[in-house]
Nucleic acid binder design. Structure first.
Length: 426
RNA sequence: GUGGGCGUAGCUCAGUUGGUUAGAGCUCCGGAUUGUGAUUCCGGAGGUCGUGGGUUCGAGUCCCAUCGUCCACCCCA
């Protein structure tokens, strides 16, 4: 027997039983984003490694140890995308979408990070991503957060905490970073090893350490919000007012920093206490310097990403309503003449009711066995066409869910009858 | 990258201190009912016990390695 080939660790198949939630999430998301005037933009899964190094940041964990990087046959150094923003910005610059104009776009697809898998964390996972360019004011920041809030509401999920913070401008952050480093150095002996290492490379990251001893020190550390430049402070105040005005609850968390280097001013994160350790479902922020950093004209930008696997886990946990997507009607057929007639009739029904989900029995079998399949696939109705029905040009319509006795319907009336039963317009 | 739990049928799991042909429920297929499912009854199919070594007269059971999976650290969506 040959060796069984398994899927790559941390990369999952999406099986038919779970496909319904994904389709639902994608269609609701497209509708919500479209409702704010955002249009879809798709970018390749593979880009030059250099793009991610520059966009995400050299010293971030994502770039340092989590990227799938390889040389292609032409010697080009490429990487599977670890996030969507970098590619979107690259595409925007390349096609002139960001030159002196406003753009609102969304994207969706797989991203890759080489991490140890666990609940809510996979090596191939999927993000929904929303980005706006050319808009510097806090009004778009508010819009971003409102979009996410509306998506939660439309999906019927709740229990999130929204945390917001401001990282200021690169200049104000440099000042704050110096003040923070001074403070942490004076307590260096009590910090954990990871934090000591970060002191030199990325001291802001010490702020969200989970080590209790470090947390105690961080609690008394200088507050980034006290070190904002005047304009960033006004921006942040306007954001808070705007969220209040929309009735969106939030918490200010001055220790909220992001793992990617490109953020400026507003950062935010929606978390939940229902998913274990991987509790961030949606995170994002403003990145006013990124477009210029990647070679475009200076253009402000802001965006967020949603972890689809995590959001879908929440939909499952909270038993949010997901529309049925399996067959509604199962067509039973037997006898040579009847089988051919049923095939033609099924095609005709699909002409007349394009949204009807009709499964035509194949592979023969006795009527009893066919009805068993009909029941098992979750269909609401069975159509029965044997030689008796073929002779009279009728079909028996039988409810499988206790909605009355079977009725006999003539072929010409069938589509209208079904449309009524299933609740769709003919 | 670090630490711990777990790998027996398609699924969920039993399997006594190592001892003949490895079990159950669900699912699937067939029959009881030669044209009526979801209930019941009967029958059948389905497993190199994750993989590779080792100990032993004998390994699903013990040892080692390896892969996978789950949870946490870490990281982040």
């Amino acid at each position: 027997m040959s060796q069984k080939i398994q899927s790559i660790r941390g990369m999952n198949d999406l099986l038919p039983a779970d496909a319904g939630v994904w389709q639902h999430l994608q269609s609701v998301a497209a509708e919500v984003f479209g409702g704010y005037g955002y249009r879809e933009l798709r970018v390749p899964v593979v880009e030059r490694t250099e793009l991610f190094r520059r966009a995400v940041g050299e010293v971030t964990d994502v770039v340092e140890k989590e990227m799938y990087t390889f040389d292609d046959r032409g010697g080009e150094n490429l990487s599977l995308r670890p996030e969507l923003t970098a590619g979107i910005v690259r595409a925007g610059i390349e096609h002139g979408l960001l030159y002196n104009q406003q753009q609102r776009v969304w994207s969706c697809g797989p991203v890759f990070r080489y991490e140890r898998p666990q609940a809510g964390r996979y090596r191939q996972f999927h993000q929904l991503d929303v980005e706006a360019f050319g808009l510097a004011g806090p009004d778009v920041d508010i819009e971003m957060i409102a979009i996410a809030a509306r998506l939660w509401q439309r999906l019927g999920v709740s229990g999130f905490v929204l945390q917001i913070n401001s990282l200021g401008t690169p200049e104000s952050r440099t000042q704050y970073r110096a003040a923070l480093t001074d403070y942490l150095r004076s307590h260096e002996h009590a910090l954990d090893e990871d934090s000591k290492r970060r002191l030199g490379s990325n001291p802001l990251r010490v702020l969200d350490s989970k080590v209790p001893a470090t947390r105690a020190i961080v609690a008394a550390a200088p507050n980034i919000l006290d070190h904002l430049d005047a304009e960033s402070a006004l921006h942040f105040a306007a954001l808070k007012r705007g969220l209040d005005a929309l009735g969106i609850a939030f918490e200010v968390n001055p220790r909220l920093v992001r793992g990617l280097d490109y953020y400026t001013r507003t950062v935010f994160e929606w978390t939940t206490d229902q998913l274990g350790a991987q509790d961030a479902v949606c995170a994002g922020g403003r990145y006013d310097g990124l477009v210029a950093h990647l070679g475009g004209a200076p253009t402000p930008g802001i965006g967020f990403a949603i972890g689809m696997e995590r959001l879908i886990a929440l939909i499952g946990l909270q038993q949010a309503v997901v529309p049925e997507h399996g067959p509604q009607v199962y067509f039973c057929r037997f006898g040579a003449q009847a089988e051919a007639a049923a095939a033609a009739l099924a095609e005709q029904l699909r002409d007349q009711l394009p949204s009807l989900r009709l499964l035509l029995n194949a592979g023969g079998g006795k009527l009893g066995a066919q009805l068993k399949r009909a029941d098992a696939c979750g269909a609401r109705y069975a159509l029965i066409l044997g030689d008796d029905e073929a002779a009279t040009q009728t079909v028996q319509v039988k409810s499988l869910r206790g909605e009355g006795e079977p009725v006999s319907i003539g072929w010409p009336e069938l589509s209208q009858h079904l449309a009524q039963r299933v609740g769709m317009s003919a």
